[in-house]
């Protein structure tokens, strides 16, 4: 027997990540807050409900079209807190820096962090800096944690999806993943593909203030929309159907995905949310999301059914219905 080792795939956000969480992590740390498996924990603190979330950023390269690791780290945590239905207030920033990182680069990153926090309206209230010897980290890793406050009537969770809900996605898919990949690998496309990294807290707040009965909010980051929908389908024990024709993907991103042989459904986004809203509220919710600067091309992509709980299906453009699985590592060829 060979010794089992952690694979890169354990961090992909796909099937292996999930089994690591539920087999290794959850049994040891088990508590009611963690078991919910939402983007952040929801904490009852003396009558107030707080959302608390943490995330580490290890992106390569640290600078890419449309942003860098700094705003990615701020927006990521702002968004994770927002997806709990909370208003993000305070965040922490922890830096692990590799010896030799040009100071100029660090400065740009810090400035970006400051600007992103300002834009999102959150205060950076604590932090930490470590420097490790060359080779022990890759340029810079950032951890951010954050706290937000959940308004009284709000109850948003990945386990709240109901049959009949409509699913809205706030914008185009796969921009971030393709932007980072193309700058890392030096791939050239016809037109520039930029990250979509953006804070979504204002969009979420308008949505919640509007009185729309929002059941689920999620940001489809690692593993992409396909993986996120699978998580929700199994958390809520519902079936999900989406329509291929309605999926918003920009021409250049679609072209890049086609050339690379990637499915945009499994590529990361950093400034998009999906919202599950009952049919009666969906038009209103869509309108509100579209009014936000980061939600202009929001669309309805599918709905929730009581059939096939835990499964996600794609109505394809040629008329069939294809099952959409969670991301499983490298997509090895199957067709013969």
């Amino acid at each position: 027997m060979t010794e089992e080792k952690i694979l890169l795939d354990h961090g992909s956000g796909g099937k292996l990540s999930h089994s690591m969480f539920s087999d290794m992590i959850l049994p040891l740390f088990e508590n009611s807050e963690l078991s919910k498996q939402d983007d952040g924990a929801i904490l009852d603190v003396e009558g107030a409900r707080l959302a608390f979330s943490t995330d580490s950023y290890v992106v390569d390269p640290i600078f890419f079209p449309g942003g860098n690791i700094g705003d990615l780290a701020v927006n990521g945590t702002v968004n994770d807190i927002s997806m709990c239905g909370a208003v993000p207030k305070f965040i922490s920033v922890g830096l692990i820096i590799e010896e030799g990182l040009p100071v100029k680069q660090l400065k740009i990153i810090l400035e970006t962090i400051a600007a992103a926090a300002k834009k999102a309206g959150v205060k950076i209230v604590t932090g930490d800096t470590k420097v490790v010897p060359r080779g022990k980290a890759d340029k810079i890793f950032i951890n951010t944690s954050g706290i937000g406050v959940i308004p009284a009537h709000v109850n948003v969770s990945g386990s709240n999806a109901q049959p009949g809900d409509k699913i809205i996605v706030s914008g185009t898919l796969a921009d971030h993943g393709i932007a980072v990949l193309s700058s890392r690998e030096g791939l050239k496309f016809d037109s520039d593909i930029k990250t979509d990294s953006a804070p979504l807290n204002k969009m979420v707040q308008s949505l919640i203030r509007s009185g729309c009965d929002v059941h689920v909010l999620r940001d489809p980051t690692r593993g992409g929309l396909g993986t996120t929908l699978n998580e929700i389908a199994s958390q809520s024990r519902v079936g999900i159907r989406i329509d291929e024709m309605s999926l918003p993907v920009t021409g250049p991103v679609r072209g890049a995905c086609e050339l690379l042989g990637f499915d945009p459904l499994y590529i990361a986004n950093e400034g998009k949310l999906i919202a599950f809203v009952p049919e009666k509220d969906v038009d209103k919710a869509l309108e509100i999301i579209r009014q936000d600067v980061f939600g202009k091309v929001a669309v309805i992509i599918g709905d929730v059914t009581s059939e096939d709980p835990g499964k996600v299906f794609l109505q394809t453009s040629i008329g069939g219905v294809r099952p959409i699985d969670m991301l499983t590592g490298e997509q090895l060829p199957r067709i013969c």
């Binding site: 990949l181 690998e185 791939l187 050239k188 050339l259 690379l260 490298e330 013969c336």
Partner: peptide, 23 residues
């Protein structure tokens, strides 16, 4: 351009699995 893009993918081992398939 497409061909040279594909070459780039192969150079970087980007989504380029290996096969011994006669097909």
């Amino acid at each position: 351009e497409k061909l040279s893009f594909i070459c780039g993918m192969m150079e970087k081992n980007l989504n380029s699995p290996l096969t011994s398939s006669v097909g």
